[in-house]
């Protein structure tokens, strides 16, 4: 990498940070409990819209893992998400009514909150439908992982997005608030992921899974990216570039081993495909606030009309992290 290239990336990073700084004005604090944050706390950042039904389980899941404080941005919800969050004792919530798209799909807002509150903390950035699985997550809390990462001088932890879906029609089993969504969306694609390397940012670009298989069989290049780096020992100089797919400085994107070995990595179980999905897809299509003119949602809307079943004979049913490890979707690396 030439000096000029790395300097350009540096400028780009500065630009995202300045942008985040400007976008802070769009955030209005509704409940600010950030004074509760202690030095070694693990913080969770998330931005959402109309996700109230998912929140009870979401908060419980991450509290159980050992997240100490939640910093959330609510984007103009109409279902009471904001009020629900404001009532939680360990949640600080900001309201943003301006465009999600103009804030680069929420990245600017979260970059700002992270630089403000996340400095020197392990920060987890996930959507309300994403559930982090890491090696030994059934026996060790998240702080065991972050302590180990600290001891190994690792600053970022990769967790690929794994799309979960139910057997039968997506809207067949309604999801109830507080329920574990993996009870319904229990299935996933085990081995149809394609990877290429993004030369500029050094990250891997992973596509595939049921969305490529069912929604983009003719135009696979349009399938959404599944690579994510949600867990980072944050520094106020860092910036997410696009969603949590990649970061700057680019060294943080090197979450994979290039010499044949495996680094430790996790999985984000993505429970987008519940009965709420069809509604959501229709609404997002209207709002046009999603990536690449909501091309993803357009494809969903079309495919969903005919055959909203993602399950196939070769779908795997989720059991635990060891299963994902054996299938080669995640790795223990040298953590034992």
């Amino acid at each position: 990498m030439s000096f000029a290239q790395s300097y350009r990336l540096r400028l780009q990073r500065k630009r995202w940070l300045i942008r985040a700084f400007r976008k802070r004005r769009e955030l209005t604090a509704v409940a600010d409990r950030t004074e509760q944050i202690r030095k070694r706390d693990i913080l969770l950042f998330s931005t959402m819209r109309n996700e109230k039904i998912r929140l009870p389980f979401f908060l419980r899941y991450y509290r159980d893992l050992g997240v100490s404080h939640f910093l959330m941005v609510d984007n103009d919800s109409t279902d009471g998400t904001l009020e629900y969050l404001a009532d939680q004792p360990d949640v600080s919530v900001w309201s943003a009514t301006r465009g999600y798209k103009r804030a680069r799909f929420g990245v600017d807002w979260l970059n700002w909150l992270q630089s403000r509150y996340g400095h020197n903390h392990w920060t987890l950035v996930v959507d309300p439908d994403e559930f982090l699985i890491y090696p030994f997550c059934d026996t060790r809390p998240l702080s065991a992982l972050t302590d180990w990462l600290d001891a190994s001088s690792i600053k970022s932890f990769s967790a690929m997005l794994l799309d979960m879906y139910p057997k039968g029609r997506i809207d067949e089993q309604p999801y109830k608030a507080g329920q574990n969504p993996m009870e319904i969306a229990a299935w996933f694609d085990a081995g149809n992921y394609t990877i290429s390397r993004n030369k500029k940012f050094g990250n891997l670009w992973i596509q595939g899974g049921p969305r490529m298989r069912a929604f983009f069989p003719k135009t696979p290049e349009k399938a959404p990216a599944l690579n994510k780096i949600p867990l980072v020992k944050w520094d106020r100089k860092y910036a997410y570039v696009s969603s949590t797919h990649m970061l700057l400085p680019r060294g943080l994107n090197l979450v994979y081993d290039e010499w044949g070995g495996e680094k430790a990595s996790g999985i984000l179980l993505h429970t987008k495909f519940l009965h709420t999905f069809s509604e959501k897809a229709a609404e997002e299509l209207e709002r046009k606030q999603h990536y690449a003119a909501s091309v993803e949602y357009r494809a969903y809307a079309e495919s969903l009309r005919d055959n909203p079943e993602l399950w196939c004979r070769w779908s795997e049913k989720y059991i635990n992290w060891r299963q994902l490890e054996i299938l080669g979707l995640m790795s223990k690396g040298n953590w034992a």
Partner: peptide
């Protein structure tokens, strides 16, 4: 564990082995 980290599983391409 060390072997997994340094040599990995042959023929596997994934998020942390490329």
């Amino acid at each position: 564990a060390v072997d997994r980290r340094t040599r990995g599983r042959p023929g596997l391409y994934m998020q942390s082995r490329w």
